[in-house]
Write a protein that binds this DNA or RNA. Structure first.
Lengths: 187, 187
DNA sequence: CTACATTCTAACCGCGCAGTTAGAATGGCT
DNA sequence: AGCCATTCTAACTGCGCGGTTAGAATGTAG
């Protein structure tokens, strides 16, 4: 069946993801992607169709990676503690040399506007929905909170997570730690 | 002294500011600016020098507008209450028809990367520094908090504010209200 | 009324971008 | 070995961007 691909899809998507994650969609050009991924435009377009297509695959890969951390919330039997641990794990994921990269989904949320690609919006919404669902369900099941309370706290934690994402790009580790501790003080 | 300008600078800066605020720096083209400001490229460049120059003037105008709200924190004699009120006032400032515009400074913070114009970075840093300073000083003076505590709480509130900025662009009013109430629960 | 500094109009420029394509290189088939 | 579908290389295209500029329009000062 003819020639074989000289790269592994997941490998090049991972490289693209890191570039998009750090630089954002707009500030990542195809030139940079070619260089970072080690393949050229033709290969990118024949495999992913478009820059958007590659971005979506990067989002999916990120969701997959973070999905592992989310599963750990579900595995715990104290939701509040597990979510707090998740916040700290996220910090480790975001951390680079010096300032953090933020949450790739959070960065995307901040970059997109009304006329963004619907597939991209969908990925972001799905992630937010899934995470909120886990927060809410675990608070309900593991900590026995009332439904109304659990929902409100899940909303609160979701927004706090968005803040942590942005903050991780400009704040010191001790400021971020202090932030997380304060978030959970009232719960 | 020759011909007079057919527009008032602050008027056109205000229009530019709203465009930058809603669409961000990158997604605002000079074409849009010409249309919205009602003057053409030549006038923009002769008055502001560059797109960056106009953006910086927009940031300054925004800081001036928000500065009024910050003064109200200083005028109060209960820092926590006044800061909470500031959060709600910000929501009104951000609100549009439907979802909010966020904080213009916060949006800028999320958009810029390492190689952004230094003048822009400076505006953002100045704003953050000023706001943190007011939070910290007021908590110290009006609520008699210890210096270490006041600083930690000021950091916490600063990051919460960043979160509120992003969240105001994607969350409902009741979610945002719930968020603010939770932020201040622990203080 | 004239002179002239300044603003405005509108056409223009070079650049980097996302996306395309012709043709060479490759390697699993029979 | 040789076919041929597929991948790869590299040059190309059209477009919108930020930014520039010549020349017409305008208003004040003498």
């Amino acid at each position: 069946m003819s020639r074989k691909k000289q790269y592994i899809e997941e490998d090049v998507v991972e490289k693209a993801m890191h570039l998009f994650w750090v630089k954002g969609y707009e500030h990542t050009s195809l030139q940079m992607l070619e260089k970072q991924m080690g393949i050229n435009k033709f290969s990118i377009y024949s495999t992913f169709g478009s820059k958007d297509g590659l971005y979506i695959e990067s989002l999916k890969l990120y969701r997959q990676r973070v999905g592992i951390l989310i599963k750990e919330i579900e595995a715990s039997n104290d939701a509040v503690l597990a979510i707090k641990a998740y916040f700290y794990k996220f910090l480790r994921l975001s951390a680079g040399n010096g300032l953090g990269k933020g949450c790739f989904i959070g960065n995307t949320l901040n970059e997109i506007d009304a006329n963004a690609d619907l597939k991209i919006v969908e990925q972001v919404e799905q992630f937010r929905h899934d995470l909120r669902h886990v927060f809410c369900n675990q608070l309900l099941l593991k900590n026995g909170k009332e439904k109304k309370i659990a929902e409100a706290q899940a909303d609160y934690l979701m927004i706090s997570m968005i803040g942590l994402s942005s903050a991780s790009k400009v704040c010191t580790h001790s400021q971020l730690e202090n932030y997380i501790e304060n978030i959970f003080k009232g719960l």
